[in-house]
Nucleic acid binder design. Sequence first.
DNA 1: GTCTATAATTAGATAGAC
DNA 2: GTCTATCTAATTATAGAC
Lengths: 215, 215
Amino acid sequence: MADTAIARRGTRPSADATRDAILTAALDEFAERSFDGATMRAIATRAGVTQPLLNYHFSAKDELWRAAVDRLFASLDRVIAARAAGLRGVDELTATKLIVREFVEFSARNPQLHRIITAESKTDGPRLDWLVDHHVRPIYDATTNRFARLTELGLLPDVAPVHLYYLLTGGAATMFVLAPECRRLAGIDPFADDTIAAHADAVVALLFGSSEPER
Amino acid sequence: MADTAIARRGTRPSADATRDAILTAALDEFAERSFDGATMRAIATRAGVTQPLLNYHFSAKDELWRAAVDRLFASLDRVIAARAAGLRGVDELTATKLIVREFVEFSARNPQLHRIITAESKTDGPRLDWLVDHHVRPIYDATTNRFARLTELGLLPDVAPVHLYYLLTGGAATMFVLAPECRRLAGIDPFADDTIAAHADAVVALLFGSSEPER
DNA sequence: GTCTATAATTAGATAGAC
DNA sequence: GTCTATCTAATTATAGAC
């Protein structure tokens, strides 16, 4: 991050803000319409600039996609690392429950994360290769290692970690990924604070069999 | 189904088989690449016909999409109805566990179902309207009514049905929707028979707290 | 019914002025 | 850095022969 700031020294003052606006617009468009459905023109309009300017800041559509995804995962990593750092000394089961809650909350505040993962992970291709190698694998390894330790301690049902991983990520994120559907079906706003908290309660209760949320 | 057969009486013998091949190809393409990413040419090639023939059988791209989705949901409805019919007289908890297992199995054998739902339910639009009105709402209502009854009997944790619905559908389907990712991360084939069975076990165990699969 | 050929539209990317 | 104008390629859909 310091690197890029240094690398971009000498650019005009507005450039960084423009780059940022483009990345935000790109993330939303890619998440809502998937890679093929998102057009460079739509992203430009959403960012309040003209379309060729995107090709000035990012040489091609898929480079823009990678930059937007990088920023999103950096945000996730920052949030989870900060939460974990505040839990040193706490027993592993309680720490895991609280990290899971943080993950549910992040999934709700940033539905783009799982929308993009889902869109790209359905089919093999260069974007999936990149996504797994650069971002998903470290998260998967850390999560399944944690589950394996808890299962060994008898604190989780004896289920292979890969199943727990997809139960957790799918169960936590789907209501927010499918927010427009959820609004129609249930008549509720999944992004309301109390709905997010209730969903976090439900995820933790089903995974760990506890009905008492801890904070 | 009898209706369409009657309505199409008089067509040449090969027409029905061609229509069917097109629908199968369309479902796979739409599921893998989403609506915008799927091209009529790719569908035609996969079906072994030329592109303009799709516009002969289906007037436009989104009519083809609807026809393919209709056939898939008809298959789901048939499978679940058959399973439920075989469970008359069985107590509701056991029946629900077995229907959930059937649903997990169907999600594995037909990952197109949740791939298409996910792609379309991220954004409001005419295809989501149609999808919810014609297919998802009846399933949602039946599922949440069942959950509400079981919760009232104390057989499910006291969690609002909408949360259970998204925990179930997301938890059951995600591993199969993201099969290419899962292969890379865990090095396993999620579509292997024993993996599907293990995932069904895990879903039932976490939802209903039972570790003994029933059949 | 199914094909070949093609029209009309829209996409991503580049050239060049300011 | 950001714009206007435009190129090339690819898309859906239609016309018309067989």
